[in-house]
Simulated scan of single mutants.
Amino acid sequence: MKITTRSMFGISARFALGLAAALAVCGFMLSSATAAEKAKNLFGAKVLPALAAPQSFGFYSKGCFAGGVALPLDGPTWQVMRPSRNRRWGHPELIGLLEKFSRDAAAEGWRGLLVGDIAQPRGGPMLTGHASHQIGLDADIWFTPMPARRYSLAQRDTVGAVSLIRPGTHLVDERKWAPVYARLLRQAASYPEVERIFVNPGIKKKLCDTVSGDRAWLNKIRPLWGHDSHFHIRISCPPGSTGCKPQRGTGTADGCGEQLAWWFTDEPWRPAKGPQKPKARDVMTMADLPKACQVVLGEPAPLSADAVTYWAKGTAVAASGAPEAPAAAMPAMPDTASAFVPTPKVDIPLPLPRP
């Protein structure tokens, strides 16, 4: 069964009415101080998501989201890396997809996913790093397979991902490449929700040169600077997120022609001339973001991160990676303990409190 925002939680009339009321009552006239405040500072200071129905607002590089849930630090087929950044949050559609992908990838021979940045608890521009990852629909997956052992939290913040690109070139290092990488990317591209997968141009070229048979999935594999040690999954705007701005489609071609050839000219790598413009995230203010993001900032938070840590197959996944009691065996929880109330009694992953 496909897990959708609508089937899991419905669209909360409370949040929709609250948003409309907030915008109508104050006319959404931000004070000059608030409007000028750097958005990255405001969103970077939030340690928990907005207690509201899951919705994404704005564009991937200019927006925010409400009702986020966290990917557990450990699962049977994944580990979250760089936990100190607190960027393991996303729209429930994305988090559910990542868990499914980790299981499917394991069936394809991949030991498990090392998951990098997803988003801040309420999205928005980040204090450092990404231009996108703002609306809970982007996630980074390392090309390094998960080891048999569990990394400590300290190791997850220090262990480095391994690049697949040969130093000094834009081509894949043949000593590191293996067919399992193509299977991994093909599996990620197989989901209808996945709109784009960003990889280094050299990795795209390797796929173009070697993939036989069905090549339609290569359309979703898009070359981009960086992405040599990880790939970036982006899903489309989820149902119910009417304020989410979709990205232009990728067409139907496999992307292995002139579009890819451009990346192997000097032009993409030529240093920019003249004064360097500051990065958008460093100058973006609240006035630059969708008006709904001001409401998202002001929404109350859940009781704790555990209250909105995602459940896999109806079973809570503890930090140790060991499954806990099935959801059906859990006692009823008060409404205030859940980020989405009331919670429907159906056999699907639910963001409920863990013991």
Rank of each mutant, 00 (worst) to 15 (best):
D288M: 01
R85M: 11
I221D: 06
V283Q: 06
L352I: 09
V69D: 14
A182F: 06
A328V: 11
L297S: 02
E108D: 13
R215M: 06
K277D: 10
A66N: 01
T265V: 07
P334N: 10
S84Y: 09
G298Q: 07
A148S: 14
P239G: 11
L218Q: 08
E195D: 12
S190H: 07
L297D: 01
L289H: 06
D214K: 05
N219R: 12
M8Q: 13
C208E: 13
L114I: 08
V199R: 08
A35E: 00
P83R: 12
M146N: 04
K220Y: 14
W217K: 12
L185C: 06
D157T: 06
E174M: 10
L97Q: 07
A36R: 01
H230E: 08
A253W: 12
H170I: 03
I141Q: 02
L164K: 01
L71E: 10
F65M: 00
Q259W: 09
A182D: 02
T343W: 12
T315H: 14
S304R: 01
R149T: 06
I141W: 04
V317E: 12
P239R: 03
P342F: 02
G274R: 00
I135Y: 14
H170P: 00
A188I: 07
S102W: 14
A16H: 04
P72K: 00
A148V: 00
Q294C: 09
K38D: 09
A154W: 13
R234E: 13
K100L: 11
L73A: 12
D347C: 05
W262S: 09
H170L: 14
V69C: 14
C244G: 05
I118A: 02
W217H: 06
W263G: 09
K62V: 02
E37C: 07
K40A: 13
P323C: 10
S152Y: 00
P54Q: 09
R222S: 07
M8T: 13
A178T: 13
L51E: 13
A148C: 02
S7M: 11
R156T: 04
T250V: 14
G226V: 00
A161V: 05
F15I: 07
Q276M: 09
L303S: 10
D347Q: 11
D214R: 03
G27M: 02
D138W: 15
S7Y: 07
A337N: 07
A105N: 03
L19T: 08
R215H: 05
M286D: 01
M284Q: 15
G249P: 08
S31F: 03
K100M: 09
K204C: 09
L97S: 05
G68E: 06
Y60K: 00
P351G: 05
R156F: 01
L289K: 03
A70L: 10
V115T: 08
R82E: 05
I11G: 03
K313P: 00
V25H: 04
F143N: 01
P275H: 03
I135H: 10
G63C: 04
Q79C: 02
V211P: 03
V115E: 01
F264N: 03
V172M: 02
A307W: 15
A280T: 14
A106E: 10
L23P: 04
P349D: 15
W225T: 12
K291G: 02
E99I: 14
L73I: 14
A216T: 15
A66V: 11
A316K: 15
A16S: 01
Y60C: 00
H227L: 04
R166E: 15
